[in-house]
Design a binder for these strands. Structure first.
Lengths: 207, 207
DNA sequence: GTCTATACAAGGATAGAC
DNA sequence: GTCTATCCTTGTATAGAC
């Protein structure tokens, strides 16, 4: 038995039933080990959560880094957001499944979520600045901070809305829907070149 | 002891600690009654939740109804949203505290949340149509459905974002912040008259 | 009708045997 | 590294006092 095997099964169960509704005994049973043995690998249920949040955060960091290698275009940005949305969908059980996050997360004891959010905001600020410089978006500084606020909230909670009544909706369908909304918002601030780039993205992702 | 007293105290505790982190024994202790006595009034914890959700939903319905008596202007609309935001803040412990709602809510057994959401969407559709007809907003039909999607997500999850790291933030501050974002979004679709109305609202709510 | 006392099941967590 | 046994908290149900 390895940590990774346990985390894989745990994520499956969390995605299916929600973090709060999966017990350590149940997880152990699904892994064919005893509850006591499970706690040899993860002392507390929250440790399982923290490990998954770390996986998720690392994955997002990689996704963002590979975007930063590319040309700053609206099309590439939308592709980035699709990839991020994909990650969120994969980890929805830990990402949305928590009531409030356990106190331990809020108090940064097991995972410093707050600092992740701060860093992400700074990156989005950067991204929108580059898109402006590249002539894709027509923005003043206030518009940038508005778009950062928008993307922070929208980009975090679309998956919560999507899974509110159905924990496993059709992935491609929901991502398509929310990406469409995002593209529309982006187009409100786009230059002609930016609009063209959005159109290109649309065409490419239909064929 | 009355139902209302219990619900008041329960909401206080839920706002402070989150629904999942308040036990029936704790609630009873705070009310100076025995746990068994509490279950005389509310058989299950979920029944407390359902009662609060009903209070909240009724409050929102009244808030919306009194808006519908007024002139359709952006200023009145923003005032409506401020009132709604106020309600959400008051009930944040039951509104946010459950990202997935308990199974009983999702399955409509104790509270038909899904039908509330559907009705609210229809009302917002109406509201934006009137604002278009009144010359406040410049919209085609696609814009309307975009704005409805926007307001549904934004109007539901701002409070979740606001309470993510701090369960009791300064109410006026956070509402001001999110209302400002909403006004900005609205202004992207506003006519000159609409912009003026937003400005009027801003001036009125500073003095 | 209102309340207390108590019991039980389920789940997180821990100690210690092998 | 794996397991059993045990403890504690919490949701829930019920018997019965007043």
């Amino acid at each position: 038995m390895t940590d990774l095997e346990i985390l894989k099964k745990a994520l499956d169960l969390f995605n299916e039933k929600g973090y709060a509704h999966v017990g350590m005994r149940e997880l152990a049973r699904e892994l064919d080990i005893s509850p006591g043995n499970l706690t040899y690998y993860f002392k507390k249920k929250e440790d399982v959560l923290a490990a998954l949040l770390n996986q998720f955060s690392t994955l997002n960091t990689h996704t963002l880094e590979s975007y930063l290698q590319l040309e700053p275009t609206n099309a590439n940005f939308l592709q980035l957001m699709r990839n991020i949305f994909d990650n969120q969908f994969r980890f929805r059980g830990v990402y949305v499944g928590n009531q409030f996050f356990p106190v331990a997360v809020v108090e940064k004891k097991i995972f410093d979520y707050q600092s992740v959010v701060t860093k992400r905001k700074a990156i989005y600020q950067e991204i929108f600045s580059s898109l402006r410089k590249a002539g894709q978006l027509d923005l003043d500084d206030q518009d940038i901070s508005f778009l950062v606020s928008f993307i922070t909230l929208f980009g975090r909670f679309w998956i919560t809305e999507a899974t509110l009544f159905n924990k496993s909706p059709n992935k491609d369908e929901v991502i398509q829907h929310y990406l469409f909304l995002l593209a529309r918002q982006l187009s409100l601030f786009s230059t002609e070149a930016g609009i063209k780039s959005i159109e290109e993205y649309r065409i490419k992702n239909r064929g």
